Simulated assay, not measured.
Amino acid sequence: MPDPQHHLACLLQGHWFAALPQTLRDDLLAMAQVQHLDAGQRLFRRGDRPGGLYAVVEGAVRIGAVSESGKEALLTLVEPPYWFGEISLFDGLPRTHDAFAESTSTLLLLPQGELLALLERQPQHWRDFALLMSHKLRLAFLILEDMSLLPAAPRLARRLLLMAENYGEGEPRRLLHLAQEQLALMLSLSRQTTNQILKELEAQGIVRLTYGEIEILDLQRLRQAAW
């Protein structure tokens, strides 16, 4: 099994991890455990006890919730070098959502107990983890505002832009491994409306649609479509 150091280059592409003090980065990698998930495999469910902080270093993870009737609410689909699970680190309460591997994936786990012990010894680093959570909170407020105020077309463009910019956490990417059904779930739009908007973006040369993927051809024009 690869050592967590094997994934250092991936993690350093993320703004949060790259900005950490060198000694803290070393401590986190020393405690990290490599986990492999098959496509569709559950990582945790809403209500599970917190197990620690995760980083996606290969593949993708789907985060959302499923009702008793089987209806799915998809919040986000995250790819490297995305970190998640920090809410339960702060409050120690159960997981707020479900997490499943969207594809064959590799994650790094910082175990809850070891991470809390490190923060007990070095409480100055709580601020570093608070910055991770505050970044997510800002994004959540922006998405809620978009859901309330924007028509469907610019709302969809903004979500594609956020994903293309890796939610502000890594380098921009052109190819989104995202099915249209998943995008519709994220935006609470019908599959038909989502397809119509994407087809319009494709006709304008802004995106290219293939099975299970959306390729961003013109990032600048996508930004314009998001307003």
Rank of each mutant, 00 (worst) to 15 (best):
H6T: 07
D146Y: 06
R223M: 08
A101L: 09
Q112W: 07
L110W: 15
Q13H: 12
A153I: 04
S105I: 05
L156W: 02
L132I: 09
P50E: 02
F129I: 05
A226M: 04
L116R: 15
L144T: 11
D218E: 11
T96G: 01
L107V: 11
L219H: 11
L24I: 08
P111N: 01
K136W: 10
D26G: 10
W16I: 00
A99N: 04
T104N: 15
L89W: 08
E145P: 03
F44K: 04
S67H: 03
L209Q: 08
D98L: 10
E215Q: 13
R62V: 04
Q122A: 12
S134A: 13
S67P: 04
L118Q: 08
T96Q: 14
W16Q: 07
E213P: 05
L142R: 13
L198W: 02
R127M: 13
V34I: 12
G92E: 06
D38I: 11
E114N: 12
F100L: 14
L11F: 11
W16M: 05
L185F: 04
A130H: 12
Q182V: 05
G52D: 04
E102I: 00
L161Y: 09
V56F: 07
W16S: 09
L53N: 08
R42V: 15
T106I: 10
A9D: 15
A73K: 11
Q122I: 02
A19W: 06
P80Q: 01
R46G: 10
E86A: 12
A9W: 10
Q220F: 03
R45Y: 11
M186E: 10
S148D: 14
H135M: 02
L75M: 13
I206E: 04
A101H: 05
Q13M: 10
L222I: 07
D27L: 09
A226N: 03
E58V: 09
